[in-house]
Design a binder for these strands. Structure first.
Length: 287
DNA sequence: CATCAACCCTGAGAGC
DNA sequence: TGCTCTCAGGGTTGAT
């Protein structure tokens, strides 16, 4: 499940090269193949093809969990959702014949230099947009976790403005962009905050600790090239450094207490019952 | 505004 | 071995 560190890792590889793959910077689109139509959020296949063929790739960046490919006159956005990945591959064999798409390739963009960019997505939840106005897609996102303008004061104020449990609030991309289930659980554990804590009950000091923790776990994830979970996404090794995520029953690395798993907002949630004590006024104490 | 369930999908793992 | 069943999970949508 690619979250900010995994998406950042992929975006950097596309821009600078890496993961044994060349950069896509400066390449020109020659043709496209859409194998699963729903992968293309907008526009439809004919318009998409007409508008993207001939365009040159100027830059690659990231916003939240979106990968932003800057073209000459518009933007190609990707959201990997659960199982998406972007791979740069050789498109033509030595005889100049097109190498057939790999299993679960949903969208393939061919370049004029014989390479291609493949959007591979087992579960088909991922989406791509071709748009002149990326704000139409990205406009609703909350701040970037590493943005300097996101100070402890600002986060504290943001938390106070809502009356929700911390876990689902941090997962909400409109509140903060980039966290997913893994890094949210890890950040809350590091900040010693129970996932059911009401956002209005978070003190300034706790907000400050939370911001530092979020940046710490995300930074650690990026440094380790993300986490490789199940068969999804290759390369990273942050999965070997989880403190609580998918560590149910294992000892908390801080105090040794077995990690517990509960469900909050239809999401599995892992925490240490000692390091992250039940808040005085938990939101929805019953469930 | 907040919560909740359903939905989109496939493959892994459990149970038989 | 092979079948069926359950489940995971990000984000969207519609109902309460």
């Amino acid at each position: 499940m690619p979250e900010l560190p995994e998406v950042e890792t992929i975006a950097r590889a596309l821009r600078d090269g890496g993961r044994d793959e060349p950069s896509i910077m400066g390449k020109t689109v020659k043709d496209v193949h859409v194998y699963w139509k729903r992968t293309l959020a907008e526009p439809g296949v004919p318009t998409f093809t007409k508008r993207i063929v001939g365009q040159k790739i100027k830059d690659v960046s990231r916003r939240g969990k979106f990968i932003v490919v800057h073209l000459q006159s518009e933007y190609l956005l990707f959201h990997l959702r659960m199982s998406g990945d972007l791979k740069v591959q050789v498109n033509l064999d030595p005889e100049g014949k097109r190498i057939k798409a790999q299993k679960h390739d949903q969208l393939v963009i061919e370049f004029s230099d014989g390479m291609r960019l493949a959007f591979n997505d087992t579960r088909k939840f991922g989406r791509a947009w071709l748009t002149r106005d990326p704000q139409m897609v990205l406009g609703g996102l909350g701040p970037e976790p590493f943005d300097a303008s996101l100070t402890p004061e600002v986060l504290h104020q943001m938390l106070s403005a809502h009356s929700r449990q911390l876990k689902p609030l941090l997962l909400d991309q409109k509140f903060l962009a980039g966290l997913g289930n893994i890094y949210t659980d890890e950040a809350l554990h590091l900040a010693k905050l129970h996932p059911m804590t009401g956002s209005k009950d978070v003190t300034f000091k706790q907000a400050k600790d939370l911001l530092r923790s979020i940046r710490k776990v995300l930074g650690e994830g990026i440094k380790r090239n993300g986490a490789s979970i199940d068969w999804v996404y290759r390369g990273g090794d942050f999965q070997n450094h989880f403190s609580v995520y998918q560590c149910t029953g294992e000892p908390c690395p801080v105090c040794g207490t077995p990690i517990q798993r509960i469900v909050i907002g239809q999401r599995s949630t892992h925490y240490c019952p000692v390091c992250q004590p039940e808040p005085a006024r938990p939101v929805n104490p019953g469930k």
